[in-house]
Amino acid sequence: MDERQVGSLTFRLDLSQPLYEQILKQMRSAIAKGEIALGEKIPSVREMAHALKVNPNTVSHAYQELERDGLTETRRGQGTFITTSRERVQQFRRELAERLLADFVAQMQSLGYTWDEIEHCLHTKKKEAAVHGRNGGAL
């Protein structure tokens, strides 16, 4: 796994996973987390392809998807920018969390966990994290 820096962004690409999905996922979370500020310009397809050493088609494919998400907008002749709408990013972040949560719950339930048990698990996890002093902070 390679770590690559593009401007303020850090990417981790794993060549044994589909690249397009990795780029898309990492861009999405960077935006959701606020690693790239609202209205900020993102690297061009070419710059991104160079930095990541991947096919420009893969990058532009991911960029198209971001635009479809409403997270970016392309201004003719100027490049691609993060949306200026805080609301849109927040909403996207909520949707993303919603989806992760739904997945998580569904999988736990498929293992036979009840709502209470799931809640208990989460509490335990939180305490553990606090002890280790990591991971917990962000939540």
């Binding site: 397809v45 070419r46 392809a49 160079h50 050493k53 991947v54 096919n55 420009p56 088609n57």
Partner: peptide, 11 residues
């Protein structure tokens, strides 16, 4: 060479 190729493919 790879860098140059990425450039060519981009445009």
């Amino acid at each position: 060479i790879i860098d140059a190729l990425i450039d060519r493919v981009s445009d």
